[in-house]
Simulated scan of single mutants.
Amino acid sequence: MKKLLSERAATFCLLLILALLVVMHLLILAGIIPFALVWGGRLQNQAQMLRFETVSVLVNMLLLAVVALRAGLLRVRLHPIAGRILLGLMAGLFLLNTVGNLLSAHPFEQMVFTPLTLVLFLLSLRLAWYAPGNNSFPANPL
């Protein structure tokens, strides 16, 4: 996988996809995208949607911050092992999300978000497994 996808490409793709997911969840919160398309089509009302989508935005922003740390875009020191653990947890989360999307009641979620979360799993795994030693979470950005 290391030769198929560079660390830089994996980082850029993760940053881009996670940022777009935050925007998508904000559009769901705003009512522009119907909430029936997410959460397996199981949300019953507006109050449930607000809770679930708020959590989604916060989690995706946290994941975005982890990748930004990995890219050296944030000036925060993080031990390389802690960073690799966080990226491994991200990969696990995306793998579970892929299974959840496969079990979705909504065909759109199955067709669009299953491959997307699988790609996010592979990108996160790329950064977690093939970190370049102690420089995987730089203290000084670019």
Rank of each mutant, 00 (worst) to 15 (best):
L16I: 05
L29A: 15
L120G: 04
R75C: 12
P138A: 06
Q46P: 00
E109F: 08
T11M: 01
F121S: 00
T11Q: 03
Q48I: 15
M61I: 06
F12G: 04
A91W: 02
I32E: 10
L14P: 02
I28F: 01
V22C: 10
G92C: 06
R84M: 14
F35Q: 12
L116N: 05
I33Y: 07
F52S: 11
V67G: 03
L50T: 10
A131P: 09
G92H: 01
G88L: 10
L142T: 03
L37T: 13
R126W: 07
A71M: 01
N97S: 14
H106Q: 09
I85N: 01
L37M: 14
M1S: 14
T98E: 03
H79N: 09
H79I: 01
V119Y: 08
R42N: 15
N97L: 12
G88V: 10
E7S: 13
M90I: 15
V66K: 01
M24F: 10
N60A: 07
E7K: 10
P132M: 01
M24D: 13
S124F: 00
I28S: 07
P115L: 12
M61C: 14
L127P: 12
L73K: 02
Q44P: 01
T11I: 03
R75D: 13
I28D: 10
L62V: 08
L96M: 10
F35P: 10
N45C: 13
L96P: 00
A131T: 08
N135Y: 06
G40T: 11
P138R: 02
A36D: 14
L127R: 07
L29R: 13
L43R: 09
A105K: 07
L116T: 06
A139Q: 10
V22L: 03
P138I: 03
L93F: 14
V112D: 13
T11E: 01
A19P: 04
A9N: 12
L142S: 05
V23K: 13
L64G: 04
Q44W: 05
L96F: 12
N134C: 08
L86K: 03
A82Q: 05
N135V: 14
L64A: 00
L14C: 09
G40V: 03
L63F: 08
R51A: 15
L127H: 06
F35Y: 15
T98Q: 07
F52Y: 13
I17T: 07
V66W: 11
V38P: 03
V38L: 12
L89C: 13
E109A: 11
Q110F: 09
L96K: 09
R70F: 06
H25L: 11
M61Q: 12
A105F: 03
L62W: 11
F113G: 04
S56I: 01
A131G: 15
R51M: 13
L73W: 09
L27M: 02
L102Y: 09
G92E: 03
L69S: 07
A19F: 07
M49S: 11
L20K: 04
L103A: 15
T98R: 06
